[in-house]
Computed example of a mutant assay.
Amino acid sequence: MEIIAERNSSTKVFQTAMVNMMNSMNVATPKYSVADAMVKLCSMDDFDSSSPEFHYAYLESRYGLKPSLRMSIIEKVGIFVYVLAHDVPNRLILERFQHSGETGSRVFKEVLYVMDGMSRDILVPRDPSFKEVPRYLANDARYMPYFKDCIGAIDGTHISIIVPEEDQLRYKGKKGIPTMNILAVCDFDLLFIYVLTGWEGLAHDSQIFLDTIGKYYIVDKGYSEKKGYLTPYPKTRYHQFEFRGASPRGTKEVFNRANSSIRSCIELSFGVLKARWKILDKNA
């Protein structure tokens, strides 16, 4: 009982520190933090959804993250977020949280498994039927009415990984290091609505593209022309920097510049993601 009482007492202090730390990391953009995502999933009336206690109780009730005798849920999430945000080795986990490296590694994997389950509820379109024209397009004369049916952008990014030596060759791509090619879809609010992982770094975007089902998305030249995917005109100026100081000439260049401008949302989303979670940004 003394151990449990001590844990509950220290949790309150640690909880305040963790909430402050998580809030301080909400820079760059996203409107939604991990806590916000939990609120989005809220359907329980017995908790104050604005309180930190609610978010962590929800992780336990819905996704099965359990406290241990000496570690609360909020501390487990704290270790997980700290590792993601700062890409720290086990030694620093030991110093900051006063737990062994083995404990830190085990807790990280435990929370990662839970977050994988939660992501299946979060990474979904806010408007599954796509009936409304995104405000980003509706309020810009450059895009309306020409792109009114566009619902997002698709692109891939490379994340460096550690794999056994015998598997490194097939994971080494143009970067020269083992990477995993991650394909993602985002909307115009910079929110990811679909993510496909598990492809070796050698896999080309267009190959990954064949493993997904889409609708009307903006894509770049790395994708095949196919129904539901809007690609730019080939052999025509496309990237934004190519139009600096030189206005587009002809309808194809006008289209390509608009296409590139709209698709920038996915590049910005990846940039924000890697800036916030340093573990993903290892010069991949």
Rank of each mutant, 00 (worst) to 15 (best):
Q15S: 12
D36W: 08
R126G: 14
I73W: 03
P248Q: 02
G152V: 05
R126M: 15
I182G: 02
E242W: 02
H239D: 01
V219F: 01
L92T: 10
M21N: 10
L112E: 14
L230F: 13
P52S: 05
R106S: 13
C186S: 10
I218F: 01
D205G: 00
F54H: 11
F54A: 11
E242K: 14
R170G: 00
L41D: 07
C265W: 00
K12G: 04
I122L: 15
S49P: 06
I161N: 09
I279V: 11
L273G: 01
F243P: 01
V133W: 05
E95A: 13
Y223E: 01
I193C: 07
K109A: 13
G173F: 00
P234V: 03
L183S: 07
R249K: 14
R170A: 03
D281A: 12
D36C: 10
S72F: 04
L191V: 07
P178N: 03
M118F: 11
I122T: 11
D167G: 00
T16M: 08
K31P: 07
V272F: 14
V272I: 15
V83T: 10
E166N: 11
D187A: 04
N8E: 12
W277A: 02
P67L: 02
T29Q: 10
A153C: 15
K31C: 08
D127S: 10
G152W: 05
T29F: 10
P232L: 00
A37W: 12
L190F: 12
Q168Y: 00
V39T: 14
I162H: 09
K274F: 03
L65A: 08
